[in-house]
Design a protein around this nucleic acid. Structure first.
Lengths: 138, 138
DNA sequence: GTGTTTGCAAAATCTTTGCATGACG
DNA sequence: CGTCATGCAAAGATTTTGCAAACAC
């Protein structure tokens, strides 16, 4: 079975002048399959396990490229290496369990609205934002 | 004129078993005087300019210590070295102008409340959080 | 074909650390 | 004085980059 989403993505990338190399295709697969939030080293390991020869340098370059294309998003939690997630979902923020490192997603349009209001009041518009809740089970 | 705040802080540190060395006193001064959000290298430079001999390693160790004491807070904006600010103010979040790097502070109790609500609904309590708005003038 | 992308290894950046020496309380 | 802190230099961790060879379109 062919992965429809990956194929569509590849076409979009080509249309944007980004070459879909064997390495990039492999990383797209790995990212699409990820249900967590892996960092560069982890993505590299998964691509290698999947049989795709890719260098870590290429992983980094590819992540930058895919981010510029809006295909993936970069997450930078406190003091950890950057993590990545597919951007094909609806917007959400993250909640991190400080005891076990679990990362959960949540979204709240009231908060989104308030952020936009606050920025507007100060004469700005939001380009992007970052909201992370570091939490503990109660 | 003596700096009342710095003196009180030093007493609190000593009470907590933290020695107030010449280097730490100098850094406390520099941090108290800072009206911006300097990183370790910048704090080091300011301390040196002020005539205090301090090594960069000590600056890093001191920042870690002061953070553990709740005296300062660590800010980690996207892809920059960590910045620091005195913790003696009321809680606030940050807004960063993506065009010129200016960092502004803001606070909104409605957002704070919503965050706590969301965490509670999922069975968690907030240990700390991070909210950054990357903005552009409109 | 030809301009992009890759791999490798080296470098860059920021931060931490081991160990002998110095100094705070 | 005993213990904690400092300085130095070396190491760590993550990410970036120069350059020649390989590849996508």
């Amino acid at each position: 079975m062919t992965d429809g989403r990956a194929t569509r993505l590849e076409q979009a990338l080509r249309a944007a002048g980004v070459r879909v190399t064997r390495q990039r295709a492999a990383l797209l697969q790995v990212i699409a399959a990820a249900e967590d939030h892996p960092d560069a080293a982890e993505l590299h390991a998964r691509a290698m396990t999947a049989g795709a020869g890719v260098s870590l340098a290429t992983v980094y370059r590819t992540l930058t490229t895919l981010q510029a294309q809006g295909v993936i998003e970069k997450l930078e939690f406190q003091g950890e290496p950057a993590r990545w997630e597919a951007a094909d979902q609806t917007h959400h923020d993250h909640m991190i369990d400080v005891d076990n490192g679990a990362v959960m997603e949540f979204s709240d349009e009231r908060i989104e609205r308030l952020q936009a209001e606050i920025a507007a009041e100060m004469g700005y518009e939001i380009v992007h934002h970052r909201l992370e809740l570091y939490v503990r089970r109660r």
